[in-house]
Amino acid sequence: MALAKRIIPCLDVENGRVVKGVQFVDIRDAGDPVEVAKRYDEEGADEITFLDITATHEGRDTMVHTVERMASQVFIPLTVGGGIRTCDDIRTMLNAGADKVSINSAAVFNPEFVREAAERFGSQCIVVAIDAKKVSGEGEEDKWEIFTHGGRKPTGIDAVEWAKKMVDYGAGEILLTSMDQDGVKNGYDLGVTRAISEAVNVPVIASGGVGNLDHLVEGCIEGKADAVLAASIFHFNEYSIPEAKQYMKERGIEVRL
């Protein structure tokens, strides 16, 4: 009897539509984030994350409506990330029905924003997203740095120190994406996942680079993550959520079946 490790499918949403594609044979509209979320909900996903990659103002209004629709049909926790820059952005998303918001680059540009947000809305709904990339070379002591702009811009900030600081400022959860792995499908960067998970006392979600079910298992066991996030392995029907959970359970990981 213990708290279950969470499996979180993540959807990239632009102008209210899922991008990067989701391929379910029996789904009515694979581009509608709410339809996809409902499917994951029925399969037993523990949470859903929407990452809004919309650049325009109009598109962001569309996202609010998407979140509202999702909240009236799907009854598991929903995190919304992407473009959260002000307390008004947070209030809008929470009022629309999001349970948590994920703050990424706005935290790097203005760490006080995280403090203000946690004081105003409570740490339980403030997730700080960290994009980390390994910067140490062969034979050097491991070191990971924070990157912004989708992994293109280095900041010189140490990832582990940054995670600790964000928790001090009130982050209730860390969403850690290891950039060098993202999209490569070689699995999470277990080194940085474990380093951050051991350095902070709030839950850590591992993200980036999942290509098979062993990667989810490694993320929990070696990476010591509290939750594992994945996108494409679920979107393209490579694996279903129940398959993933069964696989993890067989390897001794507590899951919600």
């Binding site: 213990a2 279950a4 490790k5 523990d46 209730g172 006392n201 709030v202 839950p203």
Partner: peptide, 20 residues
Amino acid sequence: DELIETNGERLKVPHMGWNE
């Protein structure tokens, strides 16, 4: 200090997720 589960695992706070 933070709680430690019988299997040695450190318990994060908040208690977040699905429990029995």
